[in-house]
């Protein structure tokens, strides 16, 4: 790791002010992704702002029936929360499908949203990567691309977003609450939180420099059968090849979001009425415009079959 200074602010306002004083600083919460990247010198912040003492670790009911999840709530605690298990089973299931017990005990809600891609070319500092070093090119295009994106990617980057949690949050219409260095707060819908790469794949979210996530909000429960099905190379502790988050109602209407296929959780609301016609028509509409590589074309078929399995389970 490169040397860095470190501070432990006690309030979100202090943390935001610290970020304003140190423009190249990074916030650190669980640290499970950031420290890994710092060891590899993919990240080399000169200053760390430890946000663990900010008191953002509660889950509170909201007026109107939703939940406000503090940015620092650990993945284990969020998955195990009785209200989340009962009313937002999709979120519990997605969290439990990710990482390991040790990592979930550390990883936070906000940190999970901000984790970087696991594209092997992003991790290998000998390789060209526009996300790691803008303008250097993308060695993944034409390279080993089995795990990489089939839709939403660009000529500059074919990395996927690795989060399971974010896929569930997208299907649940969650929003991300933030505070800026000047104290201004805003709420960003999950639909707008992760950016597509375009020609600036290094910019992954809608966050502005120094902006701190304070909470994730869930709207009132929507009921339905909530199923998260993750397909991966081993039974546990692996990133998704394809994952399907679905909320299926008794009347057959459904929400579907996909993981493992795109640079952000992939949901196409306009395609969701197609679910009534079956997994094939639905997935053709959801993945309309997909441009898989010769190595990851299987993901298109796998996504359709995984959705088919999910719909059968929901209706069974």
């Amino acid at each position: 790791m490169k040397p860095f200074t470190y501070e432990r602010p006690a309030s979100p306002a202090e943390a935001a002010a610290a970020a304003a004083r140190h423009p190249a600083a990074k916030f650190i919460a669980g640290g499970t992704n950031l420290l890994d990247l710092m060891k590899l010198q993919i990240e080399a912040p000169p200053h760390l702002i430890d946000v663990n003492g900010l008191g953002l670790d509660g889950i509170e009911p909201m007026a109107g029936g939703g939940l406000r999840i503090g940015a620092l709530v650990r993945n284990t605690d969020l998955a195990a929360d009785a209200r989340v298990r009962r009313d937002y089973a999709l979120l519990s299931r997605a969290l439990l499908a990710g990482a390991s017990g040790q990592l979930r005990n550390k990883a936070t809600t906000a940190g999970n949203l901000l984790q970087r891609t696991r594209c092997p070319y992003f991790y290998d500092t000998n390789m060209a990567c526009n996300k790691r070093q803008p303008g250097s090119g993308c060695a993944a295009i034409g390279g080993v691309s089995r795990q990489l994106a089939v839709i939403g990617h660009s000529e500059a980057c074919i990395a996927t977003n690795p989060s399971d949690m974010a896929v569930a949050l997208r299907a649940l219409d969650a929003a991300v609450e933030t505070i800026a260095a000047d104290g201004a707060t805003r709420s960003i819908p999950m639909a707008d939180f992760h950016r597509l790469p375009g020609d600036t794949p290094q910019r992954e979210t809608a966050l502005r420099p120094g902006e701190l996530i304070t909470a994730v909000t869930l709207p009132a429960p929507v009921g339905g059968r909530q199923i998260y099905r993750k397909v991966r190379d081993r039974a546990s502790y692996a990133f998704a090849l394809v994952s399907v988050a679905a909320i299926v109602q008794r009347d057959g209407s459904a929400r579907v979001a996909l993981g493992g296929v795109a640079p952000r959780p992939w949901r196409v609301e306009a395609a969701e009425p197609e679910v009534a016609r079956g997994a094939g028509p639905a997935m053709r509409a959801i993945l309309d415009g997909a441009r898989p590589t010769h190595e990851n074309a299987f993901k298109v078929t796998l996504a359709e079959r995984t959705l088919g399995a999910v719909l059968a389970e929901a209706r069974g």
Binding site: Y6, I28, G31, T32, L35, N52, T76, L103, K106
Partner: peptide, 12 residues
């Protein structure tokens, strides 16, 4: 609680 000691800083 169990954690990976390699992915956390002593100062934290």
């Amino acid at each position: 609680r169990r954690i990976n000691a390699c992915l956390t800083l002593a100062v934290m």
